[in-house]
Design a protein around this nucleic acid. Structure first.
Lengths: 162, 162
DNA sequence: TATATTTAATGGCATATACCACTAAATTGA
DNA sequence: TCAATTTAGTGGTATATGCCATTAAATATA
């Protein structure tokens, strides 16, 4: 009867992305809850485990995150003893991020829960779909995409040269 | 040479979604900046304009957002005179959300900027891709998806029945 | 009708994330 | 070599978002 869209997310990919991010974040968090880690925190621990000895700067770039935001986000993880910052010897501006042994243990244990969430997600969406979606999202996260976006002449711009 | 994934976002859709959300959010915000509105704020104003007279509860459900989170997020918009809460006459628990005339004007003006961001995004990703992505994201945001996720037997669960 | 339960909203607290200003250290260039 | 610039990180402030406890109002139930 009425196919008028109910929300801006029907037009606006940014809104759609944020909304889906809230939903999926919630679903993952519910599964991860027994660990006591938030979804973001588990992601962060995992990425730190993966990027051994990366600096804050490097990590922030990988995560497409503001450097200071990363610093703030790490605070609870440092406070709880999962993560530590180690000053670099050769460049005294740099701090390297690493898991403590306790953090390693926590990350590994929580991975069981993550696998559970992962399995549920892929069951609900379909394995192919899930992978396609990740690819699309990771494309958007690339620096090259930001450059393309910046370069993109929007036709409303007077004097755009194509 | 080395196709080892650099990040958990290569596996984890939740991480991929958050990362892409940061990137795209940034790109949109840069375009919207002259308006003085954050991306989220513009989305919210637009949704309020669209869902005329919705209650906080209704709006929160549409946005897949926690009710109290919505309340908090609205505070700056109320403070700045874009939005007002009107108590419902028949159910005195309920508050209805609406734009002030000033808010209507602001939303309309800012839409020009949004269109610019929109155009850039679709140029950068491709119109078809963009639409497919929105569809996928909106599917995830549905209540039905959350139910499917909850129902999904993850094979790691002992005694799963299929 | 009186009580129990559910629902809407608020306020406090915690994390997630961004921007800005600032400090310190490294790098560039005259 | 020394000043100018760039880079890494920190701390403050603001928004975005979730949870919990609480209040008030509506609904259901005995």
């Amino acid at each position: 009867m009425d196919d008028t869209p109910k929300g801006i997310w029907d037009f606006c990919t940014n809104s759609a992305l944020k909304r889906a991010s809230r939903q999926l974040g919630q679903l993952y968090e519910d599964v991860l809850a027994p660990s006591g880690l938030r979804g973001t925190q588990y992601s962060l621990l995992s990425q730190i485990a993966h990027s051994r000895n990366a600096s804050l700067r490097t990590l922030a770039d990988l995560l497409v995150m503001d450097l200071s935001a990363l610093g703030h986000t790490l605070k609870p993880l440092i406070r709880d003893g999962y993560v530590e910052l180690v000053p670099d010897a050769s460049d005294r501006r740099v701090k390297r991020v690493q898991l403590t042994p306790f953090g390693v243990k926590k990350q590994q244990e929580t991975t069981d829960l993550w696998r559970k969430a992962q399995a549920r997600f892929e069951n609900a969406l379909g394995k192919q779909e899930a992978e396609a979606l990740r690819r699309a999202l990771n494309g958007i996260s690339e620096a090259a995409f930001a450059e393309a976006f910046a370069r993109a002449s929007d036709s409303t711009e007077p004097g755009a040269t194509g």
